[in-house]
Nucleic acid binder design. Structure first.
Lengths: 340, 340
DNA sequence: CTGTTAGCGCCTTCAT
DNA sequence: ATGAAGGCGCTAACAG
């Protein structure tokens, strides 16, 4: 014999099992119309020779890739990592492979949409955590596959995310109802994204207005996403003549940075200053940070399920908004009584 | 005309450009032997119709997949995320796609090696951050592709990583040279991994012995990887009759948890207790944690390059060990003078 | 340099 | 239920 080496093909298995390639194929794919005995024989041979069908050849003939692409702007951040984990988990169960596309900075991103490296390689694309611009959307059409967005508002595509406006309202509302009036906000923007007007910020303005609290522009600081930036922003806030009694940060990571600065300045939390973030990052629990939790894993899971549904011809208009919830821990309290 | 809809094929492009499929193929693939004018024409047509070659069909004919698989035990942790980012960056530049396989817990892992979902789908496999067991190694042979390990000692495969023994030595050595003798160690083990005897622990024992410091088993606590676990371990350490003057944690995340417990207990760092970790996690900088930095991105980059080299027929025995370096910040200091 | 022709490994009618 | 044959989209070897 000569095929002791090299990869066996379907034809080999068929011959070895004494059937035609057609039957072999059907048997391996669990097609209904195959005699149980025949199937067993084929399966046995395949098993014995450690044979598995070539997904690429199969896909070529079938017209599908069996893959989905994930476009992610960050990998080393909890939110995105968790999201990817959830997505992968669902896709894996459906026997779909995950192709990873990292678009770190603006250049990566531009190149991704220009070259479209995912062309002809995926059955669907999941965009995680950033809004698609119109020009990008047009490029994506060339992919000619389903596109869904996860964890970011993307009006153009079916998406699953949280209600940022509501999340922000829960955070700021908590501060307001605690009696705070000098409420600062640290806006976190992704330096590599178009600085879209955040709903998390909108919540702040709306709520303060409703509470009859005049907006003090000096209490609003905008920084790049991240702990160090949060720390710096807080430094700025502390240097203010009339220091805020509370801080609303757009994310826990930023909040943690702020907390560090506050502590270093010798101030106590929450006695002197209250801090609230958004996310319910694992570190929030560790540091007793009051925050607005968002179901990250769930967002990933639902997104993947949405994709699977679309792949099976399901309706394309089924976006999902998941609830967030205020998690009160120990970085918030009523403001200290002052002689103001 | 009829092919205004549906995906164009190479044959279409060839016809449209007035050449044979062979020439079209060569032109698109940048093969040398094609008249500049001809190539230009083909490229123009392809461009005009937004045509790109089918990677799967191409791969089928060529015998390669153009993909590599990444096997990762965690996605939401900084170390792994960064690693993946680095790997992806290099592979992308080489026009190689990245298939992601997440093996979270032991069951995932077992299933991965049992089913080998990557079979026939990748040209190489990169195992990130965990040691391969013998049984698993045998299964991997069925993949019949290059396997390389990143960020973990895998004697069986070419790998790039740091020298854990050395890293630990730098950390503990720092404490010893500072004058500490009551040095505690918080060992971090991944609950989903085989609890291999860590070199980071070996460093501790060796160094203490060399310094003539008797080993006190109560000063060594083993916990699952993570901040909360580190915090708990520290609680245990603080409840000891003779409290340690310093703590060596296997990772920054664990160290940060420990720090939290220390602060909560009303003790000062580094005055009352020194803390040193390993990794140089971004948070370490934010929190002024003394640590032993390891070049994570670099490990990923080198690993990917090693893979590319292997794919081009390079030597298979070129493992790489990257240096770590002590980063002294503000959580370590000489022990307070006692009347001991 | 370029056109033609076999495959690459599998799926899917179409008959039987 | 099963075998035979055509086709999926592309590459490579061969003649020119």
């Amino acid at each position: 014999m000569s095929e002791s080496v090299g990869r066996l093909t379907l034809a080999d298995i068929a011959r070895l099992a004494g059937v035609g390639v057609g039957t072999a194929s059907r048997a391996l794919n669990g097609s209904s119309s195959v005699a149980p005995a025949t199937r067993a024989r084929v399966l046995a041979v395949a098993e014995q020779y450690h044979y598995v069908i070539s997904p690429d050849a199969s896909g070529l003939a079938r017209g599908t890739t069996g893959r989905v692409g994930l476009v992610v702007p960050h990998m080393s951040r909890w939110f995105f990592g968790t999201m990817v984990e959830a997505l992968e988990a669902v896709f894996r169960r459906a026997d779909i492979d995950v192709l990873l596309y990292h678009v770190g900075d603006r250049r990566d991103r531009q190149e991704f949409f220009q070259r479209l490296p995912a062309r002809r390689k995926v059955d669907a694309l999941v965009v995680v955590g950033f809004p698609i611009e119109e020009a990008e959307r047009q490029r994506l059409e060339l992919l000619d596959v389903h596109v869904v967005a996860a964890g970011g508002q993307n009006a153009d595509y079916p998406h699953v995310s949280i209600d940022d406006l509501n999340a922000g309202t829960q955070a700021v509302g908590h501060l307001v109802s605690l009696g705070h009036r000098a409420i600062a906000m640290i806006e976190a923007v992704d330096p590599d994204q178009s600085p879209s007007p955040s709903q998390r910020s909108a919540a702040y303005y709306t709520l303060l207005e409703e509470a009859g609290i005049p907006i003090d522009p000096r209490l609003v600081v905008q920084v790049d996403w991240g702990g160090v930036q949060g720390a710096e922003a807080m430094g700025q806030l502390l240097s203010l003549r009339s220091r805020p009694t509370s801080v609303y940060a757009h994310s826990d990571e930023v909040a943690l940075g702020a907390i560090r600065t506050i502590r270093r300045a010798g101030l106590r939390i929450p006695e002197d200053i209250s801090v609230v973030g958004i996310d319910d990052h694992p570190l929030a629990r560790l540091t007793d940070l009051t925050t607005v939790g968002q179901p990250v894993w769930e967002q990933g899971r639902r997104t993947a399920e949405l994709v699977l549904s679309l792949l099976e011809g399901g309706p394309a208009n089924s976006s999902v908004t998941l609830p967030t919830r205020l998690v009160v821990r120990r970085t918030t309290a009523p403001p200290a009584a002052t002689s103001d």
